[in-house]
Amino acid sequence: MARPIRILVAKAGLDGHDRGAKVIARALRDAGFEVIYTGLHQTPEQVVEAAIQEDVDGIGLSVLSGAHMTLFPRIKELLVGEGASDIVLFGGGTIPNEDVKPLLAAGVAGVFTPGTPMATIVDFVRRECGKRVGA
């Protein structure tokens, strides 16, 4: 049997809104994935370092401070620089619709705006991060 999918739930930036990150972390764990939560206020460098150290299949990034257009591309850039571009970067937060396309173009695999059902995110992770597990 394939190993379980491993996900890093990350809070980058300075804001402390962790309700969404924690709810998603629990939902992913209840779906049978291994979940590591970084805690708050991580720099992009810390997030990528943790992702590589923990050998995760995906990073779920939560940003509610309005800094998503800075933080998502920066983390993607660092992943590519570390030769870890196979780690699936996805995330959500207070992200207006018009920012979704540019984020996807910057290499973010999935952007989930407010009100997205947890099941949608679980399905996404199973499908996209599952590829890396080979399940």
Binding site: L14, D15, H41, G66, A67, T70
Partner: peptide
Amino acid sequence: DMPALMGYDSDHPRALGEVGKC
């Protein structure tokens, strides 16, 4: 904004992308 709330000046590296946002 978040940098002011967390004790960082606007030109601190950790403030990048957060200045004047929240």
